[in-house]
Simulated scan of single mutants.
Amino acid sequence: MRFRRGRDTDESFTAFVATRSHRLIAHAELLCGHREQARDIVQSVLTRAYLRWSRIEHDDPYGYVQRSVTNAVTDWWRTGHQRHERPVDVVPDAPAGPDNALEDRRSLLAALDLLTGRERAVVVLRYFDDHTERDVAKILGISVGTVKSTCHTALRKMRIALDDEVRGPRPSHGTQEQS
């Protein structure tokens, strides 16, 4: 089967990728926690979207592709036990500008790393992508109540982690040194 692409379709898809791919990569990175894995996932999703572009470009192409990225990351989590390699974070060259922004980003990503896959997805979809609880429930195939409780738990974990980073680890209760 041969695919015939028109020049307008190619230009439309190229423009979409140029304007939206950075946002899609950021979305995927927040969900999976690894920049290079996020880039791979987005590239795979965009490859599949290109084949369907003439059908999706006139509706809500960003919503369609973003949902596809979310689903691809979810698939990536589910098959984690089958992977023999694990992505590692490479320390990027420090960008020009204030160090606080880079430290804040690192702190946020470290706090996100403490979350389960579902918790991370709920937080990213609610607060990074600004979806409603109902939308998050629909995207992830869970109930609105599960979104609320998962979000509550995830934000609590993140607050504790970020608070510990600022103030230092809390002393453990219940264990006292004996002299």
Rank of each mutant, 00 (worst) to 15 (best):
L51K: 07
A121I: 03
S21A: 15
Q178I: 10
D164H: 11
D135H: 05
L140S: 01
T47I: 12
V42I: 04
R126S: 08
T47P: 03
A94H: 06
D113S: 15
L102G: 10
V147M: 06
L46A: 06
V144K: 14
T19A: 14
L115V: 10
R35W: 09
V90Y: 07
T79S: 14
S107M: 09
R126E: 02
T74Q: 06
W77D: 02
C32H: 08
R55C: 04
P92M: 05
L102S: 13
V166K: 15
A72C: 05
R78S: 10
L162A: 08
A18P: 04
R39Y: 08
M158I: 12
H131M: 11
S44Y: 09
V123Q: 03
A18D: 11
G145R: 04
A26M: 07
K138Y: 05
L30P: 00
A154P: 09
H22P: 03
F13Q: 07
L51S: 13
L102D: 10
R7M: 14
V69S: 00
S179V: 13
A28H: 06
L108C: 11
D113I: 03
R106C: 10
L46T: 03
Q66M: 15
D60N: 14
K148L: 04
T150N: 03
T175E: 10
V73P: 00
V90S: 03
H58Y: 08
R126D: 01
E133K: 14
A72V: 04
H131G: 00
P98S: 15
S44T: 13
D135W: 03
K138S: 12
M158Y: 08
W76I: 02
T74P: 01
K148H: 07
L140W: 06
S179M: 10
G117M: 01
R126V: 03
G80A: 13
L155N: 11
A72Q: 12
L51R: 13
A101M: 07
I139H: 02
A49C: 08
T116I: 06
T14A: 15
H27P: 01
Y64C: 08
E177Y: 13
Q82G: 04
A110Q: 09
L140Q: 02
G80V: 01
R159M: 09
H27K: 09
G145P: 04
W53T: 00
P171E: 13
A111C: 06
A110T: 12
H58V: 08
G141P: 02
I25W: 02
R48W: 03
D93I: 10
C32R: 10
V73A: 01
D129N: 07
L155T: 14
L51W: 08
W76T: 05
E36H: 15
H34T: 03
L162S: 07
R106L: 13
T116S: 15
R159V: 13
T175W: 09
D93S: 10
P169W: 05
P98D: 14
P87M: 05
S54Y: 05
C32M: 07
N100D: 13
L114E: 14
T9R: 03
F3S: 08
E119Q: 15
H84I: 07
L109F: 12
N71G: 11
E57M: 09
R5N: 10
V69D: 00
D129K: 02
T19M: 11
